[in-house]
């Protein structure tokens, strides 16, 4: 059953909290950019090229993904019931940028927050009958983690160890 807008946000917020990720709410894209700028501070950044991500990072802060401290990306979809953000990689949105830096800031348009996994797969174009599916999609639920050593839960192995989602209304 699909959730109402407010319920979706409540669910999403609760899941992210459990996953040790943070959620920041901004009334507009301009505000979201300001929040992102503040979260980044003086750290070095690798980012995807997208209009929504313009005007956040100073040119001298930008760094190649392998050296950057922060990755700045835009989600295509998010799932209220699981806390996952989903993104399709393509030209201008490289996989390496999304996975190499230890901290990640994800901008999310509130209109892309859906109720469940099934809706999210359709929203991002993973369904039969399409001309071409996105070649590589990742759903990320919270920071990367491991419990391989005595079940002690540790955040951050090969993918980001900190994840901040900034949700905004266009």
């Amino acid at each position: 059953m699909a959730l109402e807008d407010d319920d979706r946000l409540d669910h999403f917020r609760a899941r992210l909290e459990e996953l040790d990720a943070s959620l920041h709410e901004a009334p507009s894209l301009a505000d979201a950019r300001a929040v992102a700028r503040e979260l980044i501070g003086t750290a070095t950044v690798a980012r995807w090229s997208d209009d929504a991500l313009e005007g956040i990072v100073e040119r001298e802060q930008e760094a190649p993904a392998v050296d950057a401290e922060v990755s700045l990306i835009l989600a295509d979809v998010a799932v209220a019931r699981t806390g996952a953000v989903g993104f399709a990689h393509r030209a201008g949105r490289p996989r390496s940028t999304g996975v190499l830096p230890p901290r990640q800031i994800v901008l999310l348009d509130g209109a892309d927050l859906v109720t469940d996994v099934g809706a999210a797969l359709r929203h991002i174009g993973l369904q039969a009958g399409r001309q071409a599916l996105p070649g590589n999609v990742v759903f990320a639920a919270g920071p990367s983690r491991t419990s391989d050593i005595e079940q002690r839960s540790i955040r951050g192995v090969h993918a980001p160890r900190e994840l901040a989602v900034v949700i905004f209304r266009r």
């Binding site: 806390g83 996952a84 393509r90 030209a91 996989r95 590589n136 990742v138 990320a140 983690r145």
Partner: peptide, 21 residues
């Protein structure tokens, strides 16, 4: 006991058109 894996990858074919990978 988790609602979602930390990462789920969906791979349809090799990288194309300027995508890395």
């Amino acid at each position: 006991g988790k609602m979602a894996a930390a990462s789920t990858s969906f791979i349809t074919g090799p990288a194309r058109d300027g995508d890395d990978g």
